[in-house]
Design a protein around this nucleic acid. Structure first.
Lengths: 339, 339
DNA sequence: CATATTTGCTTTATCGATTCAGCAAGACAT
DNA sequence: ATGTCTTGCTGAATCGATAAAGCAAATATG
């Protein structure tokens, strides 16, 4: 038998106690005593009563009335991915400071799940969205924008959709990383990317392509299917080891931290030495990179800054700004021993 | 200028369209057409209209009326910690299946933050809590229980508080891990734990103590302060390396993944070989453990199962069960090369 | 046939906060 | 003295869904 939950004090309780109307109390509560011409003495009395009776506004009632919930929906591909979990951490902290609460969902890069999450969140009447869009199904993002809901895309964006985003300068980061490999004397540089039409991946591939082209080197790209990761990575490792294969490499550039991890697991299984037998550059960062036998050189994304910017822009939008922000953040190449 | 958000269809809209009262529509919506004796034809018409007009219930209004928000508050120490982020992932998925939404907060093992999070969540009228309690300040947990809110503690619990929990058999796991070290011939086994009164840590320490005592070995414990981690770990490494110190060791057992990581960073800085110069057993798991020069032997916690159980119990409670569940899950010792 | 009972629906209060419209009473101007 | 303004407050509608209470009409029972 659950103990009786003590009912909270309502505006009405305060009003009754003082023998005034709820309107007055509400005005004082919302700092409108000037505009609404509330008497000076009664203001003081109301403030006291609010304090004494330990009044806490009912969020739900307020939301129903105002149509604002002070809630933000965050959809990432996987909250268990350290890049996203640390970004989420930052988003929650920042949102909290501004009086917003965050609800999080993981889409697994899957359209149906994304749509279901968006539906749930719309149903919960979030005031705005921060979304890492999944590949292919832009309908729900379009819906969000068309309905006039504030939306900030992070990590990647949908070029066709005119809305806010905060991303890495993916082309630049990738170009930079590959050039570093080139400067270290590697000639057969491979890139392991995801097979997707998402712009961030396209840009990372373009950075790689541009860099190897400028150096007069051959292009070796694997596009791994997200839902056949293991098979495709296996095939990849077979090809890149084979001296007779056109895709034989001396260095590998991985396009995300999940790909880096998957690749390294396989490299370990095959007992390949890094960087002697194959050099490696990772992406995104992961504590695991620090502990690899050869600590990994990698492209570090400013995940926290990304989260902070996203919240800042979103709240601006929620509060009525009409301007659309497109932000590209700079990467950092962390140099260590893997190449 | 934000585009006009198209107003959603309400119960009233449906009722008006059909020329019936909202009560009827509500009954049909909630499957009470039998109890509330709604006519067979009108039921069909209402169902059709709900379908056609694409009706979606207003969650906020429902919450205000029912006093239930179908929302769960989850407080962990740090959502960026992979142990908790993967648990959170699992909790969200399971909660979603049962029609609940989760809001997450990170306490950083800090009382004030914990309290603020609980306040926010109470204010948002969550239906129940899943909490990883922080050290020392049990007031808010007691408050939650006394107010009659369902609460499930995970990872650790507060013995004085009679409520549900799902934890690891910490004593057993620790005992087992240390015995494994003993069976491998290590004689000077040290344990690195956090300085805290929390039961899970006490139990892990008790497991270690019991194991070394039974083997007639000396006790070497470091209790690291959570907010002076770096200093304390440094001091620890100085002592355990010193052959003349009573705390000199040939093997280290770390009590959490954050401690393991912090310890390994330091071990790497000092260029100590694992396991030759010092053997290591970790706790909790972390992808990083797989990539350590000597892949780490560690105590694996069933984080997903913990999350699943927690949600199951919590929802049971929310739906009115009075029974209190105390669940201890079994660990798994993952054997590899670090000892 | 007269009285119960059942069936099918409507009315209305409620959850708690917000806010517009409106009403007295006093201040001020003409 | 009459009309206009200002001040300080109240009443009631509203957001959308739920559910208790009540009311006719239809059916059943004696």
């Amino acid at each position: 038998m659950s103990k009786g939950r003590s009912k909270r004090v309502s505006l009405k309780d305060i009003a009754n106690k003082l023998g005034v109307s709820t309107a007055l109390v509400s005005y004082v509560l919302n700092g409108q005593e000037k505009e609404k011409r509330v008497g000076a003495e009664i203001v003081i009395k109301i403030r006291q009563a609010l304090e004494e009776m330990n009044y806490v506004p009912n969020h739900i009632a307020r939301s129903l009335r105002n149509g604002k919930t002070q809630t933000i929906g965050l959809i990432v591909t996987d909250i268990a991915n350290p890049f996203f979990s640390s970004m989420a951490r930052c988003i929650e902290d920042e949102a909290g400071k501004k009086g917003y609460t965050v609800i999080i969902g993981s889409s697994d890069e899957n359209c149906n799940k994304s749509r279901r999450l968006v539906d749930t969140m719309l149903n919960r009447q979030v005031d705005g969205f921060i979304i890492v869009p999944a590949d292919g199904c832009y309908d729900y993002a379009t819906l969000i924008v068309n309905e006039g809901f504030p939306l900030v895309m992070v990590d990647r964006y949908i070029p066709e959709l005119s809305t806010n985003y905060v991303v890495l300068d993916n082309f630049g980061a990738s170009y930079d990383a590959v050039n570093y490999l080139i400067s270290r004397g590697y000639k057969k540089i491979g890139m392991v990317a995801y097979k997707t039409n998402l712009i961030h991946m396209k840009e990372r591939i373009r950075g790689y392509t541009e860099a190897v082209k400028n150096a007069g080197l051959g292009k070796r790209i694997w596009e791994i299917r997200y839902d056949h990761q293991k098979d495709d990575i296996k095939k990849m490792t077979q090809q890149f080891q084979d001296k007779n294969n056109v895709k034989n490499v001396d260095a590998l550039f991985f396009a995300t931290n999940t790909l880096t991890m998957a690749g390294l697991y396989r490299v370990n299984e095959l007992k390949l030495q890094v960087p002697e037998e194959v050099a490696v550059i990772g992406f995104d960062g992961n504590e695991a990179f620090d502990f690899y036998s050869a600590p990994l050189t990698y492209v570090k994304q400013p995940g926290n800054e990304m989260g902070k910017e996203a919240i800042r822009i979103l709240v601006e939008q929620i509060e009525g700004s009409g301007k659309i922000s497109h932000i590209s953040l700079a990467h950092q190449l962390i140099l260590r021993n893997s190449c």
